[in-house]
Design a binder for these strands. Sequence first.
DNA 1: GCTTGATTAGACCGATCGGTCTAGTATAAT
DNA 2: ATTATACTAGACCGATCGGTCTAATCAAGC
Lengths: 202, 202
Amino acid sequence: MGIELDTKDRILAAARELFHGRSYADVGIKEICALAKVQKGSFYHFFPSKQILAMAVIDNMSDDWANGFVAEAFDEKLPPMERLDYMVDAVYYWQKAAKNVEGRMPGCLFGNLALEVSTRDEVIRARLNAVFEKASGRFHKALEQAVNLGDILPLDTQATATAMLAYLEGVILFAKARNDPEVIRSLGPAIKSIRIEVKHTS
Amino acid sequence: MGIELDTKDRILAAARELFHGRSYADVGIKEICALAKVQKGSFYHFFPSKQILAMAVIDNMSDDWANGFVAEAFDEKLPPMERLDYMVDAVYYWQKAAKNVEGRMPGCLFGNLALEVSTRDEVIRARLNAVFEKASGRFHKALEQAVNLGDILPLDTQATATAMLAYLEGVILFAKARNDPEVIRSLGPAIKSIRIEVKHTS
DNA sequence: GCTTGATTAGACCGATCGGTCTAGTATAAT
DNA sequence: ATTATACTAGACCGATCGGTCTAATCAAGC
């Protein structure tokens, strides 16, 4: 957490860390306040409810991702298909580092929340879905360029992009169940093998 | 639930339904008892803790799967690669039916639990991992046969089997986030495109 | 009939949950 | 100096959590 952040940001950072490291239901407001060194009064001044905090955490992490190593991985300067490997690598190193610190693989915050709360909270579910949609857009763009450059045979870029993101989430899930980041390294690169053919329009 | 079950089975069935439909943390013992029409005393007579109940639920569902449509899907009489399609189809129809009843896609109980509790409960995590391991064995066998029959080019059957299971989980996750079973139908069949080459031993 | 062990009923426990409320402080505009 | 507003502190709330405990009920064996 390091340098001085104002109260709201400290709450956000604490909640993000705790939600990601454990789960939504398992982390209470009290614990978030303790980690953020903030009192309950301050908390509810900035966030009217736990649900709204969750939304803020999702947006916050989504932004960090989008401007952080996702942006790096999907850098237009890289050959399109290499971006996928870059992305897998980034996820691998990230999860590995997290495990070294916490002892457990936290997995993907969005995937975690999606499975945990999307049957109970339609609003959060929709927000998470939007995050996935946006992420799959990156894959989509990369695939389109790969096709245009002739790096891969034509395929249904939209569907394949979604499938690739789903695969990445699945690999992270599996790695978390094994508590072993190496799973990401060994299974991850196969993301490039996934293909959904263009729908036959005759 | 239907026909008379003895107390323990009623508890198990109720817990399974509730855990699957919502989440582990969100469902309390009281609610399980209410659905099972059982009192707390009886509950704790059969299950010493919620954690142990969770394990029993996992085992119970794992058995049902293994002897139910997973056994059907991976029937040795089917051509190996067709088993994968069968499996995807089964998941699709199951989730669709569940959504029609409950209004929401429950996803995969094992995947849900894996992401929710595996950072908190090492014992449950290990159990879930064993379930995944067993399931990936089915894929493995099918792939080995497919290679032997010349239906597909040789590949790392072990790693690819795991990757395929991970993909399936990822697709279910994505479908749950969208609350749309059709995702399974459109992305699922691409499971057959996943390939991990045999490690180059020179 | 009596005893025993398995099962059920449900009151009860301390802890914790998300959230509210009031009192007070800090800051800045007037 | 006064007043409005933003923020902080933390006691407090009813509800619910997982789990315990005692008393009652039941069927089987003797």
